[in-house]
Amino acid sequence: MLTESAIPAATRPGAVPQPSVTVETEGRDHSPDSPLSIHDMTVAYHRKPVLWDVDLDVPPGKLVGIVGPNGAGKSTLIKAVMDLIPRTSGRVRIFGEPYRKQRHRVGYVPQRESVDWDFPVSALDVVTMGRYGRIGWFKPVLRRHREIARHALERVGIADLAHRQISQLSGGQQQRTFLARALVQEADLYLMDEPFAAVDAATEKAIVRLLQDLRSAGKTCLVVHHDLQTVSEYFDHLILLNMRVVAHGPTAEVFTHENLHKTYGGRLTLLSEAAEALGREARRT
């Protein structure tokens, strides 16, 4: 299984970030209708840049995939959009306004490994948390909030596990719990960090159906994804990322060999160089 590497791709030898090729041109004017509009965003950790000059508009009502090698900055991109990581420069607009004014319209599904599953809470508790922002400071959780959470658990097909402590759920069930939690946020834009990571086939199907339901309801979903095989099937739009936006546009147009090579290219070069060197070594002996 691929996991997020701590080393940014560009610090590896051979991985040269490619200049941005944006297929979609009408998105450049940063329309206020765009659920998410990022303008020249750069993000750095300890002065080492992780994302360079990200500039894109996400079209409304679409399922948008983000793909790229480990360390390409996929998680960083969505965290920086939500102000969880400071931006070095650039501007982010959610439906034409800064994030802090629109936070209730943005739903977040973090990576499953980001929380402690031994925490003494049930699946229903976790889903109810999605509602906390709307309940407001100091106010208690009421039965109607839990009813909303129970509904969401039904939608993701695990209502019968509502009272189970979360470490006793399977990986797929944990992921469904996270999705249910995002559903009760009743957002218009969903940012999902690898919802398909290490889930069973049934859960994968359930998630895809849920994403399609959300799209039918006019919601926009930005999904970090790892499996290149299913990209064309799942996503309308695609962002190919490797520290910079390599390409961005309708999947049919940007999901090409050339763009993939540009996105993942560094590593392929490194591998072929190694193979060549081995071949020379073999001929010599």
């Binding site: 973090p110 809470v121 948390m129 959780v141």
Partner: peptide, 22 residues
Amino acid sequence: LLLYKELKISSFDPALATTLGI
């Protein structure tokens, strides 16, 4: 008692808590 749910969510999932305005 007053901040039970705020303490709960920020202990369990601080990133989510922050995105919800807590």
